[in-house]
């Protein structure tokens, strides 16, 4: 049996009195690539943030790399180091005086208090290598706030790859990218997943991309509606159950999205 990277059992999450995610259970095996799909407001971002301990949960258990997530989101630092999270977007207000190399270095540093110059040489080497892996060597000295959306996503991937990780959690990684840039981003992600041995959980709206690249799908609309391989979970009948009747009509008009 493959190693379990993430085990979620009976997870329920509430926000301001109402239940947003209810009784969700699933597991991710090592080096699987799983998409979390569902309509807007289905609780996808809430679910991934609760798994990472960013949002509190009301009930249920989360185990990351075999370690239970504490009630207030605590995890041993050694486990945290192996889990990376890419938010939907990072909103920087105005000119932000942080260079790309400095930002990627933050992904290398461990949690807790430390003198900034500790491990300087090792950090520098790791940052250079990480930027090379995402094809962003030329960006090292640019300011994070000067990057285009596509460049920023690349740099965020460097932030993840700067240290060996086991699990990567992406919240709509393709948001804000045009079709070509999204394609480039996904092929880069695909290559890195292979070479780094990452397990991936990604929130996605792009069902076509999910069909082509993911090994598993979780369909969420407050609770888990279905799960399995893309062929099974994204069949027209399942999609109608998940998104409602109107969505299927739209789906048929989507260029390249039809499967016989």
């Amino acid at each position: 049996m493959a190693e379990m990277i993430l085990e979620v059992s009976h997870l329920t999450i509430g926000r301001e009195g109402s239940t947003v995610v209810e009784d969700v259970s699933f597991i991710l095996e090592a080096e699987s690539d799983t998409a979390l799909v569902g309509p807007n407001g289905a609780g996808k971002s809430t679910l991934v943030q609760a798994i990472l301990g960013v949002l509190p949960r009301r009930a249920g258990q989360v185990r990351l790399l075999g370690h239970a997530l504490g009630a207030r989101g605590q995890l041993p630092a050694a486990v945290r180091d192996q889990v990376a999270y890419l938010p939907q977007s990072i909103a920087l207000q105005g000119r932000f005086p942080l260079s790309v190399a400095e930002f990627v270095g933050l992904g290398w540093d461990r949690a807790g208090l430390a003198l900034p110059w500790r491990g300087r040489r090792a950090r520098g080497a790791a940052v250079t290598l990480a930027l090379a892996k995402v094809g962003g060597e030329a960006l090292a000295k640019r300011l994070v706030s000067d990057l285009s959306t596509g460049q920023l996503k690349r740099v965020l991937l460097a932030f993840c790859v700067v240290r060996p990780r086991r699990l990567l959690v992406l919240d709509e990684a393709q948001a804000g990218l045009d079709a070509q840039a999204a394609e480039q981003f996904h092929s880069l992600l695909f290559d890195l997943r292979r070479s780094e041995g990452w397990t991936i959980l990604q929130v996605s709206h792009d069902l076509e991309m999910v069909r082509r690249t993911c090994s598993g799908v979780l369909c969420l609309n407050r609770s888990l509606r279905c799960s399995g391989t893309p062929d099974h979970a994204l069949s027209p009948a399942q999609l109608e159950r998940l998104y409602g009747r109107g969505w299927v009509a739209y789906h048929h008009h989507h260029p390249g999205a039809s499967r016989s």
């Binding site: 990472l52 960013v54 990072i90 932000f96 400095e102 992904g107 949690a111 208090l113 994070v144």
Partner: peptide, 19 residues
């Protein structure tokens, strides 16, 4: 706490996910 301060300034969920 330099690292924590910068991460918190960039994005709070990202900072929490980094411990």
């Amino acid at each position: 706490s330099r690292r924590s301060q910068i991460l918190l300034t960039i994005d709070e969920p990202l900072a929490i996910s980094r411990g």
